[in-house]
Computed example of a mutant assay.
Amino acid sequence: MAGQWLQWVRGVVTVHIRGGQPERLVNRALEGGLELSSIRWTSDGKLEFELSVGDYFRLRPFLKETGCRAHVARREGMPFWLVRVEKRKFFALGIGLFFIGIYLLSSLVWSVEVKGNVKLSEEQILAAAKSEGIFPLQWSFRLKDKDVLAKELVTDLPGTTWVGVEKKGTRVIIQVVESTEAEKADPQSPRHLVASNDAVVTEIYTEKGRPVVKKNMKVKKGQTLISGTIGGGDYTQTVVAKGSVRGLVWYEYNVASPLTQEVKVYTGEKKTKWYAVIGNRALQVSGYGKNPFGTSENVVVEEKASWRGLQLPFGRLKKTIMEVRTDVRQLTEEEAKHNAILQAKANVMVNAGKDAVILKEIVLHEETDNGKVYMKVLFEVEQSIVEEMPLVQMQGE
């Protein structure tokens, strides 16, 4: 690799040899200390090889000696590049200014992001960061060491236990960890746990209080499951009953499902708009005109420029407008029934709670009329059947 780089710096020419004694020329040049490489015959019978610019000028005596003529087919390397640059001064200046501009843009902070804050507002954190020199369009080299910034931000932001500062390309990310105070438990009044539904008890766990039902017992809505009254006689006391009770509950639903279904279809027609993005601004550069489609969806893809792992504050944005239409699909009765069951199950889970389990489903009645399937469905669900009832509302206890 180092040899190739040195060769490029010295400059390399590819030479075609015509006439005379080409083989003798190669031998005499090598004996004379010239470095020839990539020696080969071309398809049109010419001898070709590569050598440095310096050796090319030393080749002339050997050409005269062997009666050969040399033609330079290709020039590569820094000497020739410098000659081209000399002829295109303004182009070279533009290239130089371009790279200088990229370096300067990548040396700026373009955005400051805040993560992890809950109690503290983002405005409050950004204000503290600005007082420590962290703000958009700040030079990266003017920022303090990240450990120093973290300590100073912890001091500036009461209620934080740790602040991390990280620079990723042109972004600065401030990660905040807020101090947590133990929440004071609200004082609770003595209570019973009672049944929220008519059910058959499948499981009971008492943490505090007195259980008054057992597994496989039928209970009515409002019936006491775990009593907040313990002891007896002069030793009776009331407590906050705690525990869990699960039971089998039955839900009956009447649902209707249409025999047709609307389906969204992409037609394949689309229109593309391109935007140049600089910072938080986008300038449209192509795809002008109104949306030609009656119904459409937009797909937006943004590509940020990067250089040596740094994300630069400019790029391009592609917005694709895709035409869609709505088709009506005819369903079979089985598909409509399936949709009706799913709809009923969704209603069950909303009423029974996220920890509920549907054990059985029984179709009690079904009929098809006016383009719809009507069904009456009974579900057997195992769920929590506990709700709280303050003791003050339980008269006679």
Rank of each mutant, 00 (worst) to 15 (best):
N298S: 14
F293Q: 04
A346N: 14
T160K: 08
G133H: 11
G287T: 00
L359W: 13
E178Q: 05
W139R: 15
Y251C: 02
T161C: 00
I39S: 05
E123G: 03
H338I: 12
V109Q: 07
V299Q: 14
G222V: 04
K167A: 14
E207A: 06
K220M: 08
T160A: 08
T320D: 14
V148N: 02
V377R: 01
Y251Q: 00
V176I: 15
K151F: 07
L137T: 09
L63M: 04
S286G: 01
V381C: 11
E323C: 05
M389I: 09
R210F: 12
E262T: 14
V219R: 08
N339A: 08
R58D: 10
F141T: 11
K146Q: 13
K64H: 10
E333P: 01
I278A: 08
T42L: 13
Y275F: 15
A276F: 05
L104V: 13
K144F: 01
E382S: 09
K208A: 11
F99C: 03
V249T: 05
A73R: 14
R10M: 08
S179D: 09
L391F: 09
H365G: 09
P136Q: 09
P79E: 04
E269Y: 11
M349D: 06
L193C: 06
F379L: 03
V163M: 05
V299K: 13
V255T: 00
S189H: 07
H365M: 09
V114D: 05
V148Y: 07
S286W: 00
V285S: 03
Y275S: 04
P136F: 10
I341T: 01
L82I: 11
L391S: 12
Y251T: 00
V13Y: 05
A129W: 01
V201W: 07
L317D: 06
Q175S: 15
K130C: 06
K46M: 14
E388P: 12
E203S: 14
L143C: 06
V219K: 04
E262R: 10
E122L: 01
I321G: 07
N216Y: 12
K218C: 00
G232P: 02
V386T: 11
E361P: 03
